[in-house]
Structure formats: C-alpha cells, structure tokens
Computed example of a mutant assay.
Amino acid sequence: MVRLAVAAYPPIAKTRTGKLNTIVICSGGLDSVSLAHKVAAENTLKGLLSFNYGQRHSKELDYAAACAARLGVPFKAVDIQAVGAALTGSALTDNINVPDGHYAEETMKLTIVPNRNAIMLAIAFGMAAAEKADAVATAVHGGDHFIYPDCRPAFISAFQAMQDQALDGYATVRLYTPYVDGSKADIVIDGARHNTPFAQTWSCYKGGERHCGRCGTCVERREAFHLAGVNDPTEYDDPDFWLTAVNKAGV
C-alpha cells in the first residue's frame, strides 16, 4: 500500500495582493530550490512538497527540508516508495550504474523513471485542491527536454487540461512552470537574483560526500554556472569532467 503520510498545510486564502498561494514541489536540487526562492519573493509560498519514490539516495530531501526551514514554510515528504518500486528499469531506482556524461547522450535514458512527474503532480494537485492552494509549481526546464517527456511544454499543457477536468467544480489549481522554456543557466541567473544559496542544494544522482561531477545532473549543473557567468560554490570530485562531456555530446 502506498503511504501518503502527510499532514495538510493549514488552509490559506488568496492574499489581498492577488498573489498565488503556491505549493512548490522541491527535490532539494538547484532548480527546485531556486524556484522556491522565486515563489517566496514573487508570490506566496505555502509550503514545500517532496517525494520519496525509492530513489537511489534520499540525501536531496534533507536539502529540501532545509530550504523550507530557511524560508519559514512547512515541509512535507510523501512516501511513494511502493509506486517507485514498480517503475523498474531506471538507474535512479534500481541497482543499475548511473551513467556519466551529458543529458544529450543516449545513455542518459537510463535515468528516466517512467511517469514520475505525472504521478507526483497528480498527488500535488490533489493536495493543493484539498488545502485551498492556488498553484503547484515545478522546476522543469528546457534542458530536461532531451530525454524526459514529462518535462516538455506539451506535457505541461496536457496535464493542466487534464486537471481542469479532474477538479472541475471543486477547485481551480494552476500548474506554474516558469522555467519550462528556459535553460538551467537561466535558472542559475534567476536563482542568483533571488539570493538562492546554491551551496545548500544537492543535484548529484550518486549521493556521495561531494557531487561526483560526472553524472548527467552534475555535468549540467557545472555547465549552467559556466554559461550563466555565476560562481559555482559546489565541490565536485571531478570538477573538469563536464568539458569532456559537453564536447562529446556536441552541444
């Protein structure tokens, strides 16, 4: 049985300023933590929501919890490990080596967890409707489009249309994806604008003491800071591998 062992956020009405009360899906990574800081600055951050889906390590969830504490909002982690165990074949959930390289490489398809975002968003929308939130925010971005179909604009539009039908007459919840057409470098620039503490985010799929610098998300992270012209405070085991990966992928 899937455990949804979470308490509800206290219901909060829309603010007088018209800002949206927003639940941010936060993994603890650079993208979602930057999004949390953006929402806190520009709208009303209702809380952060994370998922334990049986990923290779849960280290990132500690960073999500720390972000919530820093921003002074509730943090909830939903346990869907039983669902994750059924979504076999991914290097993020199974005993499969995490591939090194750039997301543009074919090998990165090993990091796909089928329907992961669709499942998480469906749960988040149900919670948002029950708790009178106006929006659910997620940090999907253009760099994800190579291999993750549930990060693409077409999916975002289709999911919103589906939820409009699913919640018709009960609630109106907006799917907020401000980065969907942008790059990870754009997120770094936006995160810096909102004083995101990048050193207090975790991206690496391998979950070691430091970022490995070689897996797809480490390569993308390192490249993004370079393209953004923003200092990268991250400590990597292999800080220069990203150059080799980018050249190999031809991006």
Rank of each mutant, 00 (worst) to 15 (best):
P233Q: 02
D150T: 02
D238R: 01
P114H: 07
N43F: 10
R221H: 09
F75E: 05
K19M: 00
R193A: 15
D164N: 15
E223S: 06
F241Q: 00
N231T: 14
A41T: 02
F75L: 02
G72N: 04
K206G: 00
A13S: 13
L35Y: 08
A86H: 07
R70W: 01
I12C: 08
E235N: 07
L110M: 10
P149H: 00
A5Y: 04
T196Y: 07
Q81T: 15
G89V: 04
R210Y: 08
V246W: 08
C26V: 11
G142I: 09
E105Q: 14
A66S: 12
D181K: 13
V6D: 01
N117K: 10
S183K: 06
G84N: 04
Y179W: 11
G213W: 03
V188I: 12
L4H: 10
Y63V: 00
A158G: 14
H194A: 02
Y103R: 01
D94M: 03
C204F: 02
G182D: 11
H194N: 09
H145Q: 02
V136C: 10
R16H: 08
G54R: 03
I112R: 11
A36I: 03
D134H: 12
K109L: 07
G72R: 01
T44H: 15
A161W: 05
T196V: 13
T44M: 06
D181S: 14
T177A: 13
H226G: 00
K14A: 13
K14F: 00
K46F: 09
L20W: 12
F241H: 03
A77I: 10
H57C: 08
A68H: 12
D164L: 05
L49N: 10
G72I: 02
A86Q: 10
E220A: 13
D238A: 12
Y179H: 04
A64K: 06
M162W: 09
N95D: 15
A133H: 13
A86L: 14
G229Q: 06
T17S: 15
A129R: 07
K38Q: 15
D181H: 15
A185W: 08
A122L: 11
E223N: 11
Q165N: 12
D62A: 14
A5V: 05
G229Y: 08
V6N: 02
S90Y: 05
G191S: 06
V140W: 03
A66Y: 05
T17N: 07
K206A: 00
V6M: 03
T17A: 14
V140G: 07
A135Y: 11
I123H: 08
G47I: 10
V180W: 11
G216Y: 03
L48M: 08
S27M: 06
N95I: 04
A185M: 07
V246C: 06
Y53T: 03
V180Q: 11
P178D: 09
T93H: 08
E220M: 13
K184E: 06
L110V: 04
S90M: 00
L20A: 14
E131V: 02
A40P: 13
R56E: 05
P197R: 04
Y205T: 01
T244H: 10
L87I: 00
S58L: 10
D232T: 03
I187K: 11
D100A: 14
R174E: 14
M108H: 09
T138D: 04
T111S: 11
M108K: 01
T201R: 01
P99T: 05
